[in-house]
């Protein structure tokens, strides 16, 4: 494998970090800096914010993230198969169909159980 390709990505990574950091730094240097208690207060509705910011969130966020991770794994299995697909036989098609269908059925079960509702 040509590591030069990845050297490009590595340098790109550094530049991609520097490019947005420079304007922010410049803005911080060039702009005025006059903080006062009112200005640096949490921006809400005009009244001082009440309680902790890190309130407990809906469990639904977690469930969707969970479903996403499972499907992410599935898609990553699919990619090598998709690349090789042209030269594979019918068996490969059947094997992958079973794989995808199982997860599709899974999705429908979750749907029926109401796990996909945002309530």
């Amino acid at each position: 494998m040509n590591l030069n390709e990845w050297a490009f990505v590595g340098i790109f990574l550094a530049i991609a970090g520097i490019l947005p950091a420079v304007p922010i730094l410049l803005g911080w240097l060039l702009g005025p800096r006059k903080p006062n208690p009112i200005k640096t207060d949490t921006y809400e509705c005009g009244i001082e914010t009440v309680g902790d910011t890190w309130v407990q969130f809906k469990v639904q966020y977690y469930i969707f993230a969970l479903v996403f991770v499972i499907f992410d794994v599935e898609m990553l299995f699919l990619f090598p198969w998709a690349v090789a697909y042209q030269r594979l036989d019918l068996f490969a098609f059947v094997a992958m169909t079973i794989f995808i269908l199982l997860l599709t059925i899974d999705l429908f079960i979750l749907w029926r159980k109401g796990a996909l509702e945002w309530t």
């Binding site: 803005g27 702009g31 005025p32 640096t40």
Partner: peptide, 9 residues
């Protein structure tokens, strides 16, 4: 660029 970058307390 010339605007203040406000950092919340």
């Amino acid at each position: 660029l010339t605007k203040e970058v406000i950092i919340p307390r």
